[in-house]
């Protein structure tokens, strides 16, 4: 049976370890080991894997450079965004790895796709949006708060006719706060919905009848693999846009602090 929430497996002190968290730990551990192995074998004349990874790094760096406007800023944010991209790419394809979905602890599956767990996609989205706000608050706190709680139009009131306009501006500013919350929810739900829907689709088709259990799910699996890559890319692009948007709009005021 498919469950919407990740199932808790055991407790580690005050923390409940769910199968989604265990999946995330597995992916992080594996990727760290692979990265260290890659580092050992790194050479000036790249091998096939190294060349591929260098191409990916270059592609992302150029993309960030276009969004942030300068190479220096792109390099500042590159480690975080690249980590997010790599984690999501690997996490989305985690169920394709043989035997991963067969491992069970009692009744529950032992590992679950971290991106098919709403708590973890919500965490990623909150981190991205939070980073953009912390950045903006560090660069110019008053201007950033003023963009949401708009008191400035009230100071510009010259005639009675200006009052409705000022009130309207104020409420639009309050609506922008709701907009920021909606950004978090849409960023998290988009990734979660796509990946979880892919999982459910394959499970439903495979469990329909005995006839459809073997060859029929393959097109749906291909579709979910494809959408996994697309969604990882989309998450990277959108988080780049959110961070670069605040970065660019406040960077001019205080070029020393970044």
């Amino acid at each position: 049976m498919i469950s919407l929430a990740a199932e808790p497996l055991f407790r580690l002190g005050p923390f409940v370890i769910t199968n989604g968290v265990l999946g995330a730990f597995t992916i992080t551990g594996t990727m760290t080991v692979l990265a260290l192995l890659m580092r050992l074998n790194i050479s000036l004349i790249p091998g096939r894997v190294q060349a591929g990874l260098e191409m990916l790094v270059n592609f992302v760096l150029e993309l960030l450079e276009r969004s942030f406007g300068s190479r220096e800023a792109a390099r500042t944010f590159f480690p975080f965004l690249m980590t997010v991209l790599l984690f999501i790419v690997v996490a989305n394809q985690f169920s394709v790895v043989p035997f991963v979905s067969q491992l069970v602890a009692g009744e529950k599956p032992l590992l679950r796709l971290p991106t098919a767990d709403l708590s973890q996609t919500l965490l990623l989205a909150l981190f991205v949006i939070g980073l953009s706000h912390v950045l903006a608050l560090r660069m110019s706190p008053l201007k950033h708060i003023g963009a949401f709680i708009k008191l400035k139009p009230f100071l510009n009131i010259r005639r009675v006719r200006d009052i409705p306009q000022a009130l309207l501006d104020f409420f639009l500013g309050l609506l922008d706060i709701v907009g920021e919350l909606a950004k978090v929810i849409s960023l998290a739900c988009r990734l979660f919905g796509n990946i979880f829907a892919g999982e459910v689709m394959v499970a439903v088709i495979a469990g329909l009848t005995t006839l459809t259990a073997f060859v029929v799910p393959i097109p749906f699996m291909v579709l979910s693999i494809f959408s996994g890559f697309i969604q990882a890319f989309v998450f990277l692009l959108l988080s780049t846009q959110f961070i670069a948007g605040t970065y660019k709009s406040y960077y001019v005021e205080s070029p020393t602090s970044h």
Partner: peptide, 16 residues
């Protein structure tokens, strides 16, 4: 692709 993903988000909301 990005524009499509944004269009898709209402569908994803109804899915959720």
């Amino acid at each position: 692709i990005v524009a499509m993903a944004i269009c898709e988000s209402t569908g994803i909301y109804s899915l959720v």
